[in-house]
Amino acid sequence: MTSVRSFLILFMGSVFGLQAQYTESDWEERDQWMKTNAVLSMTAVGSGDKVADIGCHEGYLSIHLARKVSESGRVFAVDIREDRLQKLRANAHDRNLGNIITILGETDNPKLPEGDLDAVFIFDTYHEMDAHEEILQHVKRALKPGGQLMIMEKLKDWVRGKSREQQVSSHSLGPEYVREELKQAGFTIISEIEDHGDWERETDKQMWIILAEKSD
């Protein structure tokens, strides 16, 4: 990702979701408004699978995934900030989860194993990826044939219908841009939710989800 712009502002600084992911004290509430279990049930992920969480922050989604794939599976948790990964490892240790592998990625490369993954998740981070084209190609190479990619984002009302650049500058992104970028990268969209509810229960921030599959 050539410059993740200062996110997964998934969460804080801008890099891979550094801004929007929460600390551990927020996780239980997030389960409710994000409907996390329902979201993960949209995918084919199950016991023994290998998956990746790009923009993992302190491990909210990675820990959910670790339980879903069970001890026989693997979760590759990627962030570009080592301090976040250190916190994730502590959170996983506290929960006796030994199937999470942390990866210190780069802004244009999540450094995932090639041809080995069943699914990749990018939650509230894609909008921070300036090098989204390169990242999608890395994701595609990491997935097995038929592997899935799920992207979740939020669209803020005040940038709805605006240019991609305007939306990204507000840490937001509409599905119309991502839909085309996925198709151009060689993915087939298999499911969409245009309105998954309100991000953090704020009615001016609408969550959406796209589930895609590696085409070749």
Rank of each mutant, 00 (worst) to 15 (best):
D118I: 06
M150W: 03
C56Q: 02
Q206I: 15
E82L: 04
E180I: 14
L65K: 08
E194N: 11
F7V: 00
Y22A: 12
N99R: 06
E134K: 14
M42K: 11
E128A: 14
K154T: 03
M1K: 13
N109Y: 01
L143V: 04
E194P: 13
A119W: 03
R84H: 10
S172D: 08
G73F: 02
R201L: 05
E106Y: 09
Q32L: 14
I190L: 05
Q137G: 03
D26Q: 15
V69I: 14
I189E: 09
R74K: 15
D108F: 09
G59P: 12
D216E: 13
E200C: 02
V159S: 03
L8M: 00
F121I: 11
S169K: 14
H127K: 01
L182V: 10
S191N: 14
R179W: 12
T36E: 11
E192F: 08
P113H: 05
H57W: 08
W33I: 13
S72M: 13
N96W: 11
E176I: 09
L61A: 07
D216C: 07
R67Y: 14
M207E: 07
L61E: 01
N109G: 05
E58V: 15
N99G: 03
K68H: 10
S41Q: 13
T36L: 07
L149K: 07
M207H: 06
S41I: 05
N96D: 15
K214C: 04
G186W: 10
L85K: 03
Y60V: 13
K144R: 15
I54D: 02
L182R: 10
L117D: 01
N99M: 12
V120D: 02
V159Q: 05
L88T: 05
V15R: 09
R81T: 07
I101T: 13
S191E: 15
F121S: 05
R141K: 15
T125V: 15
G59A: 11
G186M: 11
S169V: 03
D108C: 08
H64A: 08
Y177S: 11
R164E: 12
D94T: 14
N109D: 15
R89D: 14
Q137N: 02
E134W: 02
G161K: 06
N37G: 02
S41T: 11
Q86P: 08
Q206N: 14
G186F: 07
V159P: 09
N37T: 13
F121H: 02
E181T: 00
D124S: 01
G147D: 05
V159C: 09
D31F: 04
L85E: 01
S169I: 13
I209Y: 12
V39Q: 00
V51P: 01
